[in-house]
Design a protein around this nucleic acid. Sequence first.
DNA 1: CGGTAAGGTGTACGACGTACACCCGTCAAG
DNA 2: CTTGACGGGTGTACGTCGTACACCTTACCG
Lengths: 230, 230
Amino acid sequence: MTRQVGERRPRLHRDHVLEVAVALADEHGIEALSMRRLADELGVVPMALYKHVASKEELLDAMVDRVVDEIGPSGPPGRRWRASARARILTARSTLLRHPWARRVIETRTARSPIVLTYLDSVAAILLAGGLTPELVHHSMHAIGSRVWGFTQDVFETDVPAPEPDPDVMAELAARLPSLVRVASAVSHDTDSAVGYGCDDQYEFEFALDLLLDGIARLHRAHWQPPARS
Amino acid sequence: MTRQVGERRPRLHRDHVLEVAVALADEHGIEALSMRRLADELGVVPMALYKHVASKEELLDAMVDRVVDEIGPSGPPGRRWRASARARILTARSTLLRHPWARRVIETRTARSPIVLTYLDSVAAILLAGGLTPELVHHSMHAIGSRVWGFTQDVFETDVPAPEPDPDVMAELAARLPSLVRVASAVSHDTDSAVGYGCDDQYEFEFALDLLLDGIARLHRAHWQPPARS
DNA sequence: CGGTAAGGTGTACGACGTACACCCGTCAAG
DNA sequence: CTTGACGGGTGTACGTCGTACACCTTACCG
């Protein structure tokens, strides 16, 4: 990390800055990404970054672009729109899973960059190629919502209160939250803890995605029409 | 706002702190809510807040609790689970719409408070009362995901690039993003701008919600079973 | 009346993002 | 070979943030 005297540090390039920024966020979480920390990591003084990046906001924009770009290009759109859309979205998901901070950051972005728009366009293209009307595509993309990105804000993202299987606490819980407890224990009887969810994210994601795609396919088959405007 | 000499400031109460915090976030956005600013608003020194609130994080937790509580109690669960669930979620949405910062904050919370769990329990209760199996309820709640909260991370939350209807820019856009442009202009031909989405959030929300509830109802009718465990 | 505890104050520290003035190396033009 | 401009790294400094800690004030109870 430290450098010998006389040894020259190679010049910074924007790409290098972004690469290290992404790596840092991947490894230590987005909240660990400060301009100062990033500069340290690059062996450089904080202000040096501003020669490559307009501000921290712009840095985050560029980082998002970088991971969205990583999703890669879409295959040629064909008739089998349902399978194509599913595959494209699951690819996006697997990319985003490598950068857990990306979801949160995407959600805070206000402007959509060309790269991001290109990705969205590729999804729209798949649906249009399947013959869905533009109106149906429009509502469908809204409906899929954050799932187009390969993520969901899940209701119980993290574990429900106590990993502790204290029977008193359990009884208390069951009394206060009878329905949740019933639902939770139905699914997790294969794991040890009754409440501490061992639930399969990937399965849940695909379950919901398929629910939506099925619904869309049904509307499409039924020649869904936009409701009359008031 | 400033206080006369000799006039006594009434003592702070936690509720009052929270009330003002929520009002401040409502009015000036969550990023304007600093401990110092909040203290100012209350006519008090910043550190005074720490007698009522453990930390800023805990303050945010409590603020979320406050708005979730505002959703109000659930009606008695009955047979008509689909309508009940729909109504409950739309109520949640209308509450959350009054506090635009709440979505973002909820998403950053890691722990689920009792109040939040109570709300989730009420939704689960509705589905269970409709006769859905606990397993189906479980997956359904995951599927509805952020929509249980009455919000969505929408794909194009804000307007797509140029409100400017410059024909050159439009041609450029149409060339680069043909599908998006088609989709966008299909829906917004009733508004003036071709790309600057005038789209009905509430409609989009209900469209997606119904898609999901329909799908769930269909699975329920078909006596859906959890897939065999590996 | 005197003590205790709850609650407001003052000062201070170590982050943070970034403005601004600077300086140094490289390279093209004279 | 000199010069000067310019891209890019540096140093210092400012204002803001959350909050630790020691202090002081007030209200109330015995």
